[in-house]
């Protein structure tokens, strides 16, 4: 369960100025729920996601995930929190281009020094699911956009996260690949994962597996 309580987020710009990205937001996401955050660019969607993932801290208010006050965690504990709970799908894939597909997927697991047999099985499973078996050893920068997106999804899922966060996941994909992505997303809904998508792509607007759509405007929930 994810809870944002009276969250305001300001960004300092320059020496004195500040941008108010979020204004006194309250948000509740249930376990297993799929939520779409929509709104124009600059409305504060990414900021909400980064607060949930504890990449950032609210200026006022607090963020609570599974009873844990993640907005109070010190930097290294936020990392541990993400490692255990969050799977990230970014707008720009955010893969490490000079590593192979397999190496990219392993990255989130490296710090926990996994058992190598278990890891092999997990990778086989993921790469099969995303029909990437033949691309395992290929360097990511030599993969097509769709393949890169699938590698990015595989990476987000490798740690079995309870929360999946996708920031503009279709922004760099053409229509066909976008629909493909939506199919994958549909399969991820299993009642255990909360999925939060931030997007202004109309493709998402009338999908029946999305439980709730939230409109954001100028840092406020409408």
């Amino acid at each position: 369960m994810i809870e944002l309580k009276n969250v305001t987020k300001e960004f300092k710009v320059g020496a004195k100025d500040k941008v108010v990205a979020l204004k006194d937001i309250n948000l509740h996401v249930q376990k297993g729920e799929i939520v779409l955050l929509k709104g124009p660019s600059g409305s504060g969607k990414s900021t909400i996601l980064s607060l949930i993932a504890a990449l950032n801290k609210p200026t006022i208010g607090e963020v609570i995930v599974d009873g844990k006050r993640v907005s109070k965690l010190a930097d290294n504990f936020t990392s541990l929190f993400r490692r255990e709970n969050i799977g990230f799908i970014f707008q720009r894939y955010n893969l490490i281009p000079s590593l192979s597909a397999k190496e990219n997927v392993i990255v989130p697991l490296i710090p926990s020094n996994p058992d190598s047999n278990w890891l092999e099985d997990r990778l086989q499973e993921l790469f099969q699911n995303f029909s990437l078996e033949s691309k395992m050893e290929v360097m990511v920068k030599n993969l097509s956009g769709g393949e890169q997106q699938r590698v990015a999804i595989a990476r987000a899922l490798v740690n079995n996260p309870s929360i999946i966060i996708a920031d503009e996941p279709t922004a760099n994909l053409d229509k066909k690949l976008s629909l493909e992505f939506i199919e994958i997303l549909k399969k991820l809904k299993n009642g255990h994962n909360s999925i939060i998508i931030a997007s202004h792509d109309p493709l998402f607007f009338d999908l029946d597996f999305i439980d709730r759509q939230i409109d954001i405007h100028n840092g406020e929930i409408l």
Partner: peptide, 11 residues
Amino acid sequence: ILKAVGWTIDD
């Protein structure tokens, strides 16, 4: 990226 996917400063 590393920090976003769960690497700590220590890692």
